[in-house]
């Protein structure tokens, strides 16, 4: 079984071919064309330009996959249908539905968040259910309980800013540039994480919800009041606060829900401090719980994870109609 997967929900155009053999996923090809440089040129993301760039890049990427013109080497087509920016999503959906009709292949619509969860199936061993999943990216901070494939229950979400958004905005406050996550974690390597005692909003609340707006604001006035502080120390202390909040909440969910596995995914899961801290504390306190996080390549938006998620929809015969499938910017993560 080989799936052609397409992902265009935000700033990256990505196409992949994923196959499955003996319950193992093989990413035969995963191509990503990032728009970060172009958007930096305009000082931000422009929806219309983002969509136009997806449209320009998608055909060359499709050719680069070297699929025969009749699509004979592909068994099904998967596409991100939402959530995301509508003009961007539409390019991927239009491409996928057109190919599905022309090649007469099954079409599978995937939720972008579901794709991130399934990026953990690209780690060495497949996770065991039930799972507690922490999904952290520029637009999302979610704790999800996964009892089985396609079975999702929200435990908590951010009430204001996403964790990745906090990284980006703090990087902007410090004049570091975009995207903020990698720049902050690099600076943090040379800083003292206990230099500044930043707040940890909602860390001890009973709820599994998150809040990062107050932390961002605390950094904003710290920078204003202490213009001579080393940016390295601010980065290290800020990152430590974010990691502390994320790890504490995840552990609390592990205590309550007793999962077999913990999943960490999304763009912020590329943060080494977060990956390592969660791994260490889990192995100290819950040695029987398996820990899964995708290789760094698959933490940011990519089509390979969309292809993996599609396999599980395929097994349940959950197909989309190419004549009616539409991009949905607010597509909820719903159980199959």
């Amino acid at each position: 079984m080989r799936i052609l997967a397409i992902e265009t929900s935000c700033d990256d155009t990505s196409l992949a071919i994923v196959s499955c053999k003996d319950d193992m996923f093989i990413v035969e090809k995963n191509l990503v064309s990032s728009q970060i440089d172009t958007h930096a040129l305009y000082g931000g993301v422009v929806p219309e330009i983002a969509a136009r760039m997806h449209a320009e890049q998608i055909a060359p990427l499709l050719y680069a996959l070297e699929i025969p013109q009749d699509g004979s080497t592909v068994d099904a087509i998967a596409v991100t249908a939402g959530p995301g920016l509508v003009p961007s999503l539409r390019v991927g959906v239009a491409c996928a539905t057109t190919l599905a009709v022309a090649w007469q292949k099954s079409l599978i619509a995937i939720n972008h968040l579901e794709g991130h969860l399934y990026s953990c199936w690209l780690a060495e061993k497949p996770p065991l259910f039930p799972c507690v999943a922490l999904l952290v990216s520029g637009g999302h901070t979610e704790l999800i309980f996964m009892k089985d494939h396609g079975n999702y229950e929200y435990l908590g979400r951010t009430r204001d800013d996403a964790a990745g958004e906090a990284f980006d905005k703090v990087a902007k406050l410090l004049g570091l540039g975009y995207p903020g996550g990698p720049l902050i974690s690099k600076k943090a390597l040379e800083g003292k994480k206990d230099a500044i005692d930043f707040p940890r909003p909602m860390k001890n609340a009973i709820s599994f919800d998150f809040s990062f707006s107050g932390l961002k604001t605390a950094v904003a006035y710290h920078v204003k009041d202490h213009p001579d502080d080393r940016p390295e120390d601010i980065c290290a202390s800020f990152q430590d606060a974010v990691v502390d909040i994320l790890v504490s909440k995840t552990l609390k969910a592990v205590e309550k829900y007793q999962p077999a596995s913990v999943l960490l995914s999304g763009g912020v899961s590329a943060n080494i401090s977060l990956r390592e801290t969660l791994k260490k504390i889990l192995s100290d306190r819950f040695p029987h719980v398996h820990y899964h996080t995708p290789p760094i390549t698959y933490t940011t938006d990519n089509a390979a994870m969309i292809g993996v998620a599609a396999f599980f929809h395929l097994q349940k015969n959950d197909f989309a109609d190419p004549l009616t499938l539409a991009a949905d910017p607010n597509l909820p993560l719903s159980s199959l």
């Binding site: 993301v45 920016l85 637009g139 951010t158 009430r159 204001d160 800013d161 996403a162 958004e165 707006s213």
Partner: peptide, 24 residues
């Protein structure tokens, strides 16, 4: 965003008003 959360409460929005920085 805090101000918009207050507006949301006043207008009877039941969901949490989150930052739209990423979603636009």
């Amino acid at each position: 965003t805090t101000f918009v959360q207050g507006l949301g409460e006043a207008l009877g929005v039941k969901a949490y008003v989150r930052s739209p920085s990423f979603t636009l």
